[in-house]
Design a protein around this nucleic acid. Sequence first.
DNA 1: CTGTTAGCGCTTTCAA
DNA 2: TTGAAAGCGCTAACAG
Lengths: 334, 334
Amino acid sequence: MGNINLKELALALNLSTATVSRALRDSHEISTETKKKVLELAKKLNYEPNPSASNLRSQKSKTIAVIIPEVTNNFFSQAINGIEEIARQHDYHVLIYQTHENSELEIAFMRRLLSGRVDGILISVASETNDDQDFKDILNELPVVFFDRVNENIDAVKVTTDDYESTYKATTHLIECGCRKIAYLMALNNLSTGKKRFAGYLAAMKDNNVTENEALIIPDSNNDDDNYTHIKKLLLDEKPDGIITSIENLALPCYYACRDLKLNIPRDVKLISFSNLKTAPLLNPSLSTITQPAFEMGKEAASILFKILNKKYFEPNETLVLKSVIIKRESTGF
Amino acid sequence: MGNINLKELALALNLSTATVSRALRDSHEISTETKKKVLELAKKLNYEPNPSASNLRSQKSKTIAVIIPEVTNNFFSQAINGIEEIARQHDYHVLIYQTHENSELEIAFMRRLLSGRVDGILISVASETNDDQDFKDILNELPVVFFDRVNENIDAVKVTTDDYESTYKATTHLIECGCRKIAYLMALNNLSTGKKRFAGYLAAMKDNNVTENEALIIPDSNNDDDNYTHIKKLLLDEKPDGIITSIENLALPCYYACRDLKLNIPRDVKLISFSNLKTAPLLNPSLSTITQPAFEMGKEAASILFKILNKKYFEPNETLVLKSVIIKRESTGF
DNA sequence: CTGTTAGCGCTTTCAA
DNA sequence: TTGAAAGCGCTAACAG
């Protein structure tokens, strides 16, 4: 850009570019006096090193990539917040890529990042189907930390939440509140995240001797209207007294279906949803939630990535599991 | 990275790096046959050009920066979604920086970006105070498009929404619903965005001959608890029958204050909030909203930036104004 | 249509 | 403690 460069700085100071470069990087082999002079002029002239040049030479980009399904998902935007905070502490830059749940796009993004554009990747995967070999190839080239939606078939560093336990607890809570017909609105069933949540539900039902009912399990269709229709049919046909939704997006069609059928939540149907909506307390008429520590997950995942980058730490296939919180709305009395 | 480079490709093909480089960029001065050979081998070997090298040489980074106050704000995450979509269409990368409303950080980010790391910047500013000269310096060096929270003191390309008109309409709507004491919960008052919203409210009150009352205007304090306390006091002291909140974050403390005072919304107090919460229909007990076209703003702002980058278009100080939508919840009957 | 060559701005040996 | 010089991988002017 219209900017000053090392050579000009050196010229103005009657020093070599090498010396100036070293002074700016605070090398111990430069005299304090020279350093001072260099730093002063650099600040005065607003010198900013050209990142392409230094990346090219040093083979480090000071940049990490975050690959996620959707930024507009509350969970992910909170995670990005955490990631950005840690990246800034390390003086790193953050690139964002959205897959919109498309695995091919996901792999394409990663392949393109293999060229040195980033030093590492944080990813929450779109699905756990096939592409394993692609992932493995990429893991050989670049440090990758998986978070939340991890790929179980891959040995890698991962940060997740206690999907099984939290859903187990939530289901148990509904049972303790007297629910006997608890519907489960399933989603992410091509991901370990979704499978674990579902397993937690099934186990809680079984352990409490509540007859589980196949008919009470509805898969998510990625389309709000379809979901609404399915849920409404379920409510009419099966009359569940409790519902667990395995992702936040199912809460809305569920709420509408109840409203349109004049079912009062929580009186007629008790509802617990996975949700990272900050304003969830505003929700009507009192939706209880399973809330994941998204911000903390972002921070943890990024911190681990930086440990790997700085070679300060490298536990190859460790998985860190954070705890979700079940928030019970007082106002619902359940 | 462990990757193949141009030289190796050229060697394997018995061609010069120049020819290979041109073939890859689909230059017209290369024979179809050579191109084919090059492309084939490149694909086979998963060749990815080194971005630092080509950026350094071509002085283009294929990257844009997005500087915003908070990713976890629904408006901004939706805007990022739009920006990312357009960037991908142009084969560009997107860097994210959060200012957390800190103007100094904002300027520091921009300064650091002046070194060629990005080709352009999309920004929604933290405040409109002082830093004008810094902004002007930066605008001379790099294309910048302001969106939503623009800086009025700067001549630049901008994308905003109709803050004045939408607030005017919302206020008028409350008046038409019979409200006579309408409180305004003010925020962003150091920004034209906030000032215009406030002006829209005042004008609507005046035009409808509703006595406006200084006491009914509360500034936002950036702290939910403080806001809650102030709003509660306002509700007790002044007993407004309508409220407009100028930012989404004020809706929650407002809701709590009403609930704790046993005031029914909308029966006792009608509430309209600026909000980009996708699940707003879930809100209790029916909050009406002024919703900005965040996704579209992101797309528009990014599109304009790319027009500038491609020199296809350059209307120096144009401001594009998009329309907000006032969503009236049917269930509230107001 | 293809090759030679210089150089983008920086870091880093190696030599002084 | 400092400088000279090479070179990271790519692009583009110029030559053929």
